[in-house]
């Protein structure tokens, strides 16, 4: 149990150092279908991806433990995961912009629990150039 807490705190610290809110790239169009409606794809630039590993902090964890008795929505976790997913998408679109794309199509999301108490959120898609 102790190692679990130490590892988690490490992840939190690591995360806090690294964490800065990414400016989402507004100019990149995102869809999860194989095309962008109303636009023509001129060039495919391959896969782009963005990920983030997040861990909830101890306070939220305790609150969630209490919520586990009463049931209901864990708003803290919902927010955390929303934020994390936004960051993964922001990283993906930054990568797309860096290689000269202006849209990412066929986006998929995936979640995996890396360690107890931490989750990885992963977004990937195909970077394309639109007309």
């Amino acid at each position: 149990m102790d190692e679990y807490l130490i590892i988690r705190n490490y992840i939190v610290i690591f995360h806090e150092v690294k964490y800065k809110i990414h400016e989402g790239v507004d100019t990149v169009i995102l869809t999860n279908i194989e095309a962008v409606p109303g636009k023509k794809i001129v060039q495919h630039l391959g896969m782009v991806q963005g990920n983030t590993v997040r861990s909830k902090h101890a306070g939220k964890d305790i609150l969630a433990g209490i919520k586990n008795i009463f049931g209901g929505e864990l708003t803290g976790y919902t927010e955390l995961l929303t934020e994390a997913r936004e960051e993964a998408v922001a990283r993906m679109s930054q990568q797309a912009e860096a290689i000269g794309a202006n849209a990412v199509i066929n986006i998929r999301f995936s979640t995996s629990s890396v360690a107890a108490g931490a989750a990885e959120l992963f977004a990937y898609g195909t970077a394309v150039v639109l007309e």
């Binding site: 169009i29 869809t31 409606p37 929505e73 976790y77 995961l81």
Partner: peptide, 11 residues
């Protein structure tokens, strides 16, 4: 087209 999404965590 634009990507939209919604999530929820329920205990």
């Amino acid at each position: 087209g634009e990507l939209v999404g919604g999530n929820v965590v329920i205990s």
